[in-house]
Every structure is written in structure tokens, then in C-alpha cells.
């Protein structure tokens, strides 16, 4: 029996879909079978990030309303052989999902028997879409950025997850800028952890490469040279229970830091 993990945040635009996709890619690269399910009915994005847009024939609403079998709606990733996608419907909205919530639960249960990990990409907000996504999850990953607004919303979401009985929740701190933290213009990890008080799964540094990869429909987790890619690889390993150290400032800043240090010495 696999695990169902919901990726959520409360606030929009903090990187839920990117995290879901790359975490899925990371786990699949480590040999696990992973299904990524997009629960953002009406605003689907996950297929685009994965570059599978053109391969989608059926979506989750088609399965729920009985127009196709679940196996017909699952699309295999182009590059990673054990990664699969169940797309959201673009022509429906969240209330359609809420009406068929029991059926959605059955589908998730079925999928958990087939895959090691079922990752649900939750929509922003705390309404129907979030409720549906978090209803059937065993664990939750809360994504936030080091901004007070995002942290506040994450706090609200964690409260709601706890109320739903999801005790295992982890934090992914996205778009972290070491330089800004160092100059005191951004909340640092400690600040965020102090407010949220949950286990840190990983820190993803701000990396323009994420946009480049998303636009190409590729996963940054497959790249060993980008900072964000390496961060997602570490996060995936930690999620599988491996103990992976958190890299220090210097390591993360990489080449730029080395050049600066060199100049200063020179």
C-alpha cells in the first residue's frame, strides 16, 4: 500500500505545482513508482510543467463521471519511466469535484494500491479544492516562501490539516534567497520554523533555472548542476526517510561566493 501525500500552501504562487512535479520526479528517479494527481480543477498546470500537455486525453473528472477507466486517464512521463500523471479537468470547476468527493476518495484508495506514492497537487486557497485534496491524504507537504504573507497562510493551512487529523506534515521553504537573508531583508529558516513549528523537509533556493525548465516542460530535479535541482533531489531522499544534511550557506552560494571571496582576498 502506497502513501498519499498532499502538497499544499494556502497562498498561491509559492511553488506547489513545481514542488509536486519535482518531488514526484525525484522519488521516481530513486526507483519508486509515483503518481502525480492534479487536483487544481479548472486551472490545471501540472501537465504543462511535466511537458505532457499534448498527451492528455482523459482527466480525473472523466474518471469520476465514468467516461473512462482510471488506467486510460493515467499518462506516463516521457523521461522517467516510473512517473505517471493524472491530469485535472480544465472545463470543470472545484464544486464539481466537491459533489463527487466520495468517488474521488475511492479513486485515491485504488491508486494507493498501485503506486508507492500518490502526490496530490492541491489548489491555492482553503476551500473545496484544498478540502478534497487533503481529505484523503496520509501526509502533507506545506510549501511556503520566506514572506510573512505566505507564512501566515501556511500557518492557517497547518491548523486545518491538524484538524483533519493529518499529523505528519513537512515544510518545504521555497524561493529562499541567501543573500537577502544575510542582509536581514528576508525571514530566515529559523524565523519561519519558529512560527510554523513543523519539521523542515528542505530549502529550495531561488533559481531562475526553474522557470527555464518549466517552460521547456522538463523537471529541474533531473539536473545535477542547478541549485534548485540538487535541493529537490535532497528533499526527495529525505522524504524516503534518508538522513541528508542541510547544506550550509557557503555550499549553496557556490561559485559566486567563491569568486567574491577570491576578490576580497585579492
Amino acid at each position: 500500500m502506497g502513501k498519499c501525500i498532499v502538497v499544499t500552501s494556502g497562498k498561491g504562487g509559492v511553488g506547489k505545482t513545481t514542488t509536486s512535479a519535482n518531488l514526484g520526479g525525484g522519488l521516481a528517479s530513486l526507483g519508486k513508482s509515483v503518481l502525480l494527481a492534479d487536483v487544481d480543477i479548472g486551472l490545471r498546470n501540472l501537465d504543462i510543467i511535466l511537458g505532457l500537455e499534448k498527451r492528455i486525453v482523459y482527466d480525473v473528472m472523466d474518471v469520476m463521471e465514468g467516461r473512462c477507466k482510471i488506467q486510460q486517464a493515467i499518462v506516463k512521463d516521457k523521461r522517467i519511466s516510473s512517473l505517471y500523471l493524472l491530469a485535472a479537468s480544465q472545463i470543470h470547476d472545484k464544486s464539481d469535484l466537491a459533489e463527487l468527493i466520495d468517488r474521488f476518495g475511492e479513486i485515491i484508495k485504488g491508486l494507493k494500491n498501485q503506486f508507492d506514492y500518490v502526490i496530490l497537487d492541491s489548489p491555492a486557497g482553503i476551500e473545496q479544492g484544498f478540502m478534497a485534496a487533503s481529505n484523503f491524504a496520509d501526509e502533507a507537504i506545506v510549501v511556503t516562501t520566506p514572506e510573512v504573507t505566505a507564512v501566515r497562510d501556511a500557518d492557517r493551512v497547518i491548523g486545518l490539516l491538524e484538524a483533519k487529523g493529518i499529523k505528519d506534515h513537512y515544510l518545504v521553504l521555497n524561493r529562499y534567497r541567501y543573500a537577502m537573508v544575510k542582509s536581514g531583508n528576508m525571514l530566515d529558516v529559523e524565523d519561519v520554523l519558529h512560527i510554523l513549528g513543523i519539521q523542515l523537509l528542505g530549502i529550495v533556493p531561488e533559481d531562475p533555472e526553474i522557470i527555464t525548465f518549466a517552460n521547456k516542460g522538463e523537471l529541474i530535479v533531473t539536473s545535477d548542476i542547478t541549485n534548485a535541482g540538487k535541493a529537490f533531489q535532497r528533499i526527495s531522499r529525505r522524504l524516503m526517510g534518508e538522513k541528508v544534511d542541510f547544506p550550509s550557506f557557503e555550499e549553496e552560494k557556490g561559485l559566486l561566493k567563491k569568486i567574491k571571496d577570491f576578490l576580497r582576498l585579492g
Partner: peptide, 15 residues
């Protein structure tokens, strides 16, 4: 003069 309620967790936003 009054009863006391103990809460053994943090109160999060919205609670």
C-alpha cells in the same frame, strides 16, 4: 473564581 482550560498546543492562524 473560574474554571481553567489548558491547551497543550499552539494556536494557529484562523483558530
Amino acid at each position: 473564581k473560574m474554571p481553567t482550560k489548558y491547551i497543550y498546543k499552539s494556536l494557529r492562524s484562523g483558530q
